[in-house]
Design a protein around this nucleic acid. Sequence first.
DNA 1: TCCTGAATTTAGACTCATCTAAATATAAGG
DNA 2: CCTTATATTTAGATGAGTCTAAATTCAGGA
Lengths: 237, 237
Amino acid sequence: MPLSPASVAEQEYLKQIYLLHEDEGRATTQMLADRLGVKPPSVTAMIKRLAEDEDGPLVRHMPYHGVDLTERGVAVALEMLRHHRLIELFLSELLGVPWDRVHEEADRLEHVLSEDLEERIATKLGNPTVDPHGDPIPSREGVIMPREMVRLTELPVGATGVISRIDQQEGPVLQYLASLGLILEETVTVQSIAPFGGVVTVRVGMGGPDSVHALGGDLAKHILIALACDEAEGSRR
Amino acid sequence: MPLSPASVAEQEYLKQIYLLHEDEGRATTQMLADRLGVKPPSVTAMIKRLAEDEDGPLVRHMPYHGVDLTERGVAVALEMLRHHRLIELFLSELLGVPWDRVHEEADRLEHVLSEDLEERIATKLGNPTVDPHGDPIPSREGVIMPREMVRLTELPVGATGVISRIDQQEGPVLQYLASLGLILEETVTVQSIAPFGGVVTVRVGMGGPDSVHALGGDLAKHILIALACDEAEGSRR
DNA sequence: TCCTGAATTTAGACTCATCTAAATATAAGG
DNA sequence: CCTTATATTTAGATGAGTCTAAATTCAGGA
């Protein structure tokens, strides 16, 4: 139970550094500036503060080569992620906030959630391990339940699977996907994949030819698939 | 629907100025400093900023003689109060947060509640007009439903009434009152009142002699009573 | 009316988080 | 190996919100 010792801005930086490592394998000044909507010098300044926190460093700074979370930094990031995703699920399930709008609400609420409220929400929701986008919810102790998934773009042609996570937060994009029937738990079958990150054609559910849609590679790579059982069997060596 | 244009600190000042006028009839630098947990010079500085807001003044400053909300200031204060009290009720009803702890949670959440979420919460709760302490919830338009009440200390000996509001936010005090059975909607009868703000003795509910409690005047004045029907009749001229 | 104590305001400094402009480092290609 | 485009960092400024210390004003009593 790490009593989050950081300001709202610090929490936001730590969370984005964590997410960038997850998404891109590293976190650079420029990437952080883009995600946080600030200019690069602001990022450098904040990284310096985080690296010299009086209660011990929250990040490691390799000048000109990006930034890295320490154990303490990871703990804060995971707490924010837990808050964020619990809130998303809570808003979605208990207040009917639409799927594509929970993210921005959670972004403001996550920083003012007490441990007590976090606990009550988790209990109310039955201690869930995934949020409405399929993103994993870390446990109180910072443990993330592992799940086997591949990106839609990495699936072989003809494969069938269940949409288990959508790795993309922007409202309009989520709305568009939902309008095609591409929502969590839906089954999809790959019809074709153009090479080099090209268009992916998928059939949604068990529907006929009008449930076939073409997706750009940039979009498709954010759709994560848990392989259907028979496929998973087949892939065992 | 006044899109709250103020920072968190500004919102907090405006709210406390409003509450001080309600509680004490005026808001001085010292009173604000006490309630906000800051030093008097900080209050003076903030009042100056609020009085010279670029979109028009939020307060009127009478130097050395306190501060006053403008129409715009009142609108922001009422929006915060609406947020605060809706959140209190929401936490109490839907998450089982105890009566004496909702206040501090609401104090942090009220500043990050979107209009959309405010609306959803209000709808979910059936557009309530009172919170768990009996404090009125302003409407979206800033209208407060009027209710006839008197302080427990102002009731004549022998009078019976229903506890309708507890005008005091501190957790331990609320816990103590609850432990005596002095909770919202409970009926009380005044047994005796010592003069000059002294001890008030009340019988709680319809119970026997062990449901009689003595309350200090400072405590009793925060308990607001709606007169029981027959009493109300009797008081009509 | 004057004096004194308390409340209030002014003056000046500090922290946090941001910015712009300028200097510097890195990596990639000729 | 040098050159150049781009990323990063440094330097210095700004605004919000707070503080302490000192000056000022007010209000009540002698």
